[in-house]
Amino acid sequence: MFLDELKMGDWAIIDEIKNSETLMKLIELGCLPGQEICLKLVAPFRDPIAIEVNGHLISLCRADAKNIIVHKA
């Protein structure tokens, strides 16, 4: 499944990040394949979203979340 399909409070593990620009930025933020994440916030109008990575919040828009394949933890 894709990251943007998660519901609030869902925990998941990242399997793959498809777009190379998105991947680079997320790796820098410590958000890489194998990392456990949790969907913490959804902005009004459902976009963007914020996930917890290592106890820190990272916000990203749905278009970027669609590039991230995850499985539920």
Binding site: N19, E21, K25, L29, I58, S59, C61, D64
Partner: peptide
């Protein structure tokens, strides 16, 4: 660019 919006929300 295909990357849209990725930003840290600091504590």
């Amino acid at each position: 660019s295909k990357q849209n919006f990725i930003m840290e929300l600091p504590a």
